[in-house]
Nucleic acid binder design. Structure first.
Lengths: 200, 200
DNA sequence: GGCTGATTTGACCTTGAAGTCAAATCATAG
DNA sequence: CTATGATTTGACTTCAAGGTCAAATCAGCC
């Protein structure tokens, strides 16, 4: 139930929360030396004072949770788009792989996937995992459809799904913006590779 | 310079340190609810008192560092074995993939790879990364050799290496001992899949 | 037993980061 | 200008977890 204010309709709380989540993303991408994420860093990055963050999010846990949800929604939207298309399984999978990689590397929320979901409350973790499973099941279904339709060789769709998503989810660990390998190139080559792995 | 005691040659400090690192591994695998790793948990698991851990490791950082090194050494030994063999690139790669997956899932030190290396001191991180790169380069070299010798199709060996190792390193995130998919099955199917991805 | 050095103990110290809150400030309507 | 509610501030509190240490205990040797 979002309260709307006439005087700032285009700078409302939702916008601000999004900005904070994007800030979180940047901080996560940039984190150099220290191990843990600090609310202070997020505040500093945005030119805010730490206490101010707590006006928008009840806790660090909530911030991370909402960022996770934002992130998985991006992937779910890609899944919807792909399902709405008339493409066959191979093309669908390629699109999804590419979009997922771009989301991980250049997306506004992708880096949060590096945060351990164990730190979420049980309720939040369940909600997030449900969304994530929806996406992962979508990928598996595409693989399974490809096998059924003969575009892919017969194999275990679960394993293929785990391998593809694992390889992609690991990318932020080594990807460096501005490095030798651009996100686009990584995305295309990963897609090539996994489609080769599946072809009959 | 390790001081040797006549009266406990087979229960020396090195053994104890190993036991603690194995305990760390178990705790990391089992960690249910909370986000972070606590020295207290490691102590509890081993039936030790927290302070006692600090007799064997100067700090949590050192414990994690040494566990990382242990872990990568296991993989490096597999690499050496493979290099010493007369197998061709495809067979070599399969062996490495299988061994690496078994190390990640059932090995005595594999779970530590889930800990962020950013929390290590710069010096320790450099040392560890050097070892890890040695292993990763080894994998890339095998891929490259396979391409040269025509066992694999022409492609970017770096990308293939990243994809293979990323998919494997992600396994502990979803693998559950005693679950539907045994480590052995996962290892074989992952190997099948990646070899299909590389074949001409 | 008594000595010596290794190991264990648990109470205590310290720190860093999460989170709180009352007061100050700001934006807009009237 | 003033009233009102939204937002911002920064000093403060809390607390968990890492880490310390002097004293107690243990193992083997003489």
């Amino acid at each position: 139930m979002k309260k709307q204010r006439a005087w700032a309709a285009d700078h409302d709380v939702g916008e601000r929360r999004d900005a904070i989540m994007r800030g979180l993303n940047t901080v996560l991408r940039a984190r150099g030396r220290p191990g843990a994420l600090r609310m202070q860093d997020v505040a500093d990055h945005l030119g805010l004072v730490k206490g101010n963050l707590y006006y928008y999010f009840r806790s660090k846990e909530e911030l991370i949770y909402h960022a996770h949800v934002k992130c998985v929604r991006v992937s779910l939207e890609a899944l919807e788009r792909v399902r709405a298309s008339r493409d066959g399984p191979a093309k669908r999978l390629r699109t999804l792989i590419v979009e997922h990689i771009l989301a991980m590397t250049e997306g506004e929320y992708g880096a949060v996937l590096l945060e351990d979901i164990e730190q979420l409350t049980t309720a939040h973790r369940r909600k997030y995992v449900a969304l994530r499973d929806e996406f992962e099941n979508g990928v598996r279904e595409i693989v399974a459809a490809g096998i059924t339709q003969g575009e892919f060789s017969k194999q275990d769709a679960r394993i293929a799904g785990f391998a593809i998503l694992g390889a992609i989810n690991w990318i932020p660990k080594w990807y460096r913006p501005g490095g030798e390998l651009s996100a686009r190139v990584i995305a295309d080559r990963f897609a090539d590779m996994f489609l080769r792995a599946l072809r009959p």
